[in-house]
Amino acid sequence: MAKAPKLDSQPQVVTANDLKSGDVVYLTKVAGWSRRIADASVVANAEAGAALLAIAEAQAKMNIVVAPYLIPVDASSTPPRPIQYREVIRADGPTTEIRKPAA
């Protein structure tokens, strides 16, 4: 099992899953949720990340999202890019392709 990254001084965002749709979502600057990581509120360190996570956990208790957590991102790119491969996949969408039946 991979170890969770240390978030002390890395830029980070909060991610979770939408309770109704199951979609990957990111906490925005106005404490809403977006399916686009480009809309995510990026914070510079663990202290600011803890404040964002507290907002997300409160919304999890209200059954808006499921299992919010912090992820490290490369904030020098636009949109911010997750550092971990798992989170890159979550941000980019499913890795499977839905194929229509041949006519």
Rank of each mutant, 00 (worst) to 15 (best):
V73F: 09
P72N: 13
P79R: 07
P80T: 06
E87D: 15
I83V: 14
P68Q: 07
A60S: 08
V66N: 13
A67H: 14
V66S: 13
V65P: 00
A58L: 12
T95C: 08
L70P: 00
R86H: 09
L70H: 02
R81L: 02
A75I: 02
D74T: 03
A58C: 05
V66R: 15
S77H: 07
V65I: 14
R86M: 12
M62G: 05
V65K: 01
S76D: 00
P82I: 00
R90G: 02
E87I: 01
D92H: 11
R81M: 01
I64V: 15
K61N: 12
A67K: 14
V73I: 07
V66P: 02
I89A: 11
P80C: 11
P80G: 06
I89E: 15
A75L: 03
V65F: 03
M62H: 12
L70M: 08
A67Y: 12
P82Y: 05
P82W: 04
V65C: 05
Y85E: 14
S76E: 03
L70G: 00
A91H: 11
Y69S: 01
A67M: 12
R81A: 02
M62V: 06
I83E: 06
P72F: 09
R81C: 00
I64Q: 13
P79E: 03
P94K: 11
K61S: 09
A67F: 11
Q84R: 08
R81K: 12
P79V: 11
A91T: 10
K61L: 08
A91V: 09
S77L: 15
D92M: 14
E87A: 07
T78A: 11
V88M: 14
E87R: 07
T95K: 06
V73R: 01
R90S: 10
P82C: 03
P79N: 06
P80L: 08
A91D: 08
A58N: 10
S77P: 00
P80K: 09
Y69C: 01
S76H: 04
Y69T: 01
Q59K: 13
K61E: 15
A67Q: 15
D74H: 04
P94Q: 15
V66C: 06
P68F: 08
K61A: 14
G93Q: 03
S77V: 12
R81N: 02
I71C: 07
L70W: 04
R81W: 01
G93H: 04
P79L: 11
R90K: 12
I83D: 02
R81Q: 05
I89T: 12
I89L: 14
Q59V: 05
A91C: 13
K61G: 05
N63E: 15
S76L: 04
P80I: 05
Q84S: 08
Y69K: 00
Y85C: 09
A60P: 00
S77M: 08
A91R: 10
E87W: 13
I64C: 09
